[in-house]
């Protein structure tokens, strides 16, 4: 393996670091002194590998395509928001809206994720080693949220077709979110994704939640039609 190219945010500007990462079509990078920078390593569009030494701010690895971004530390709001593909991993905790609106790829948070984790997710898989905050998977459309710890209040409120797996307790389920049967294909999926995430848990310990599909359509009454009959 060739040595990673070092990028130092203590000396270089965010624009310089991001344009270097965005211009690369492969290779490995190590970003040092991130000092909580926002929008770090966002908009990557190639199979590059980025290792960030330290905490990042908002929207780290936002809209990621193909790249592997590994943050050794905590991440702020909107980690890997709208991620399309690739893998984004955080060894610490993640702020609100981790993996929000993500279309694909894998987001892994080893610690806890705050409120709205996986909000409006559209196909991404999110694996959280710890707990997730309230309103997680709000309006989640597609993809999978796997939580090894507990989930906060109103999990999966107004959920569409995403699948939610929680090992611990769920403070409460949001509107139209119900517990569903765990079938063999779900156990298989969990085993594979937990392995991808490098997290150790028994798939059999998870419960599954999803949409009751009762909010998908308005249900108008039609009193007049009944009277006419």
């Amino acid at each position: 393996m060739t040595a990673a190219t070092a990028l130092d945010l203590a000396g270089a500007t965010l624009r310089e670091v991001n344009s270097t990462l965005q211009a690369a079509d492969g290779g490995s990078f190590r970003v040092v002194n991130p000092q909580g920078a926002h929008a770090l390593a966002c908009g990557l569009d190639a199979p590059v590998s980025v290792h960030v030494d330290g905490p990042v701010g908002y929207y780290c690895a936002g809209m990621n395509q193909h790249a592997t971004v590994h943050v050794d530390g905590n991440a702020g709001t909107g980690l890997a928001e709208n991620v399309m593909s690739g893998t984004v991993t955080v060894t610490g905790n993640a702020g609100q809206s981790a993996g929000a609106t993500g279309h694909g790829g894998l987001v892994v948070v080893h610690g806890n994720a705050s409120a709205r984790c996986g909000i409006s997710m559209k196909g991404v898989d999110i694996v959280v080693g710890g707990d997730v905050g309230h309103m997680s998977a709000f309006m989640a459309q597609a993809g999978n949220l796997v939580v090894l710890g507990d989930a906060g209040a109103d999990l999966g409120d107004s959920i569409y077709e995403a699948r939610l797996f929680v090992r611990g307790s769920v403070a409460s389920l949001g509107a139209d979110c119900v517990e569903k049967e765990v079938r063999p294909e779900h156990l298989e999926f969990l085993a594979a994704r937990l392995a991808d995430a490098g997290l150790d848990a028994d798939p059999a310990d998870f419960r599954r939640y999803g949409s009751a599909r009762r909010l998908y359509n308005f249900h108008p009454d039609d009193v007049d039609a009944e009277v006419a009959r």
Binding site: H38, A39, C42, Y58, T77, E81, A100, R116
Partner: peptide, 15 residues
């Protein structure tokens, strides 16, 4: 889904 208020929006615009 991923910001509340103008201070967050400033960071979103930066992203």
């Amino acid at each position: 889904p991923d910001w509340t208020g103008p201070d967050d929006m400033e960071i979103k615009i930066q992203e």
